[in-house]
Structures are given as C-alpha cells and as structure tokens.
C-alpha cells in the first residue's frame, strides 16, 4: 500500500514520517554508506524542510517499508544544489511538469530478497514506483528526473522500468557512484511495471482507514491483555472445578499449554485450589 504525505496531511502522519527518516538512515547511512547527515538515528536534510511530497510504501501491518521524495525542479532541488557535479557545470533542467525524485529506498531487512510476491523487496520496489508515477501524473507531471546509484539503475531496468535517458555524467559520490536518470510518467510505463510485478488494483491506501488502523495497533496490546485475563479466569475455574486427580492434571496441562512459561503462576493457582 502507498501513502502520500505532504504539507497538507503531515500533521496526521508524524509517526510515519519519523519511521521513514529512520529507514533512510538505515539504508543510506548504514547500508549504502552515502555521505548523508544522520542525527539521532534519522536521516534528514535541508530539502526535507521544503515540504516535499513523500510517497511511502507500507506493509500489511501499516509499517513503513519503502519511501521516495519528490521536489519541483523549478525550485531548489538536489540536482541543482547538491549533485551538481553530475551536470558537469551545466544548469539543471527546470520545468513545471518535471519533478525530481530522490532518496528512493526499501527496507531490505524487513522484506524478503527472493521472489516477486507480497512481502518481497521486488514487490515493494515496484509498488513504490507505481505509486510515485501515478501520484506525479495526478499533479500533471510528465517526467521525473531521479538521482540514483548504479544498483538502483539496475533495479529500474530489471523491473521493466528502464530510464528513457540519462542527463550529465556518472560521478563518484562518497563510496558509490551517482547518476541522473529520466523517466516519463506515461501510462505505458506504469502498465509495464504493473505487468512485471503483477499488481492490478489501486495501490493507494485509504487515508482514513489507514489512520484508524494505525491508531488500533497500540490498543491491540491492551485487548491481548484483556483476553489473557479471560483465559486465566477460565483456567482457574477449570482447576477449581476439578473433582479428581485426572481432571486436575488435565486442567493443569491445559493451563501450562495456554500460559506457557508462566508455569510458576499456574502452580500457585493450583495450590490455591
């Protein structure tokens, strides 16, 4: 599922954004060794202060597993101001219908590397690409320029989402190389990625449902405790009602099975009986 967070709805998704900055720190800082600033386990740069649009991938448990950031090329953006070496001294492309996409990443720790099914890196990657292309189209955007490393370039090609061209040169950036790729936001491209990943339906999450589902995740713990309380009550009754040794043994075995390691507590219940 995909969620778009921007200036209008960010107050509703502060926790999601925080998870996203942590994911970026793990991927770009720890795994890829990019020259990024990380503080308190979060990777945040000056472009995050410009209210970019974040296209965020979520797993079935509504947790952040992928993200990418969109900025207008008419304004300040990474290729113009940070990755300008790629442009070899040339001014950047600037167009109202061209967006820049940066910080594309997926959580390879939480997803499986093999296959293309749900829960796989490939699936999350494709879903995020579809989400960002469709979201851009909705804003009237015709093309995306994206700053990527050679690994991401291969991922794009493998997902039937090969760039239509490259701008400037491939240059060394810290431990890795960086290049700028052009991708048209055409229906044909979206259809190709959808076909590759076998994704047919709407990829965007219903925002209201999402907010409610996330809110329910913590009380889940409480409802578990209530359930556990009910179970203990039931087991205690079973032990209390036991009229012979067999029944008591059965009740104790059930208690041990249900409560597992809490055997100590079971025994004290039994003693009470």
């Amino acid at each position: 599922m995909i969620l778009v967070v921007d200036a209008i709805n960010k107050h509703l998704h502060l926790e999601v954004l925080d998870e996203m900055f942590q994911l970026r720190a793990r991927v770009f800082g720890d795994r890829l060794g990019w020259d990024v600033k990380i503080s308190d386990g979060r990777e945040i740069d000056e472009f995050d202060r410009l209210n970019p649009a974040y296209v965020i991938g979520l797993d079935d448990n509504y947790e952040v597993v992928a993200c990418v950031r969109a900025l207008q090329t008419t304004g300040p953006h990474m290729l113009a101001d940070v990755f300008s070496d790629i442009l070899q001294g040339e001014p950047p492309l600037r167009s109202a219908t061209l967006w820049e996409s940066t910080r594309f990443c997926v959580d390879t720790d939480r997803l499986t590397m093999s296959g293309r099914g749900p829960g796989s890196v490939s699936r999350a990657t494709c879903e995020l690409m579809i989400g960002s292309l469709e979201y851009a189209r909705e804003s009237g955007i015709e093309d995306i320029i994206t700053v990527i490393d050679p690994v991401m370039n291969r991922v794009l090609k493998r997902s039937d989402n090969a760039p239509c061209d490259y701008i400037g040169a491939t240059v060394q950036m810290g431990k890795t190389k960086a290049l700028a790729a052009l991708l048209d936001c055409s229906e044909e491209r979206i259809a190709r990625v959808r076909a590759f990943a076998d994704i047919t339906g709407d990829v965007f999450v219903n925002e209201e449902e999402f907010v409610n589902a996330r809110a329910l995740r913590k009380p889940k713990q409480t409802s578990c405790n209530i359930l556990a309380g009910e179970v203990v009550k039931y087991l205690t009754e079973q032990i209390d009602d036991a009229t012979n040794v067999e029944e008591l043994d059965a009740a104790l075995a059930l208690t041990q099975h249900m409560l597992g390691s809490d055997l100590h507590e079971t025994k004290s219940i039994a003693r009470g009986a």
Partner: peptide
C-alpha cells in the same frame, strides 16, 4: 543520439526558462 522523450524534456525546460 538521445531519445525523442529527452528532446521533449529539454525543449520543455528551454521554453519555460
């Protein structure tokens, strides 16, 4: 030796500039 789409992107950027 660039794609037609790239020509279009350069042209659009040039027009707007």
């Amino acid at each position: 030796s660039i794609s037609v789409r790239t020509v279009e992107v350069h042209l659009r950027s040039a027009r707007e500039k």
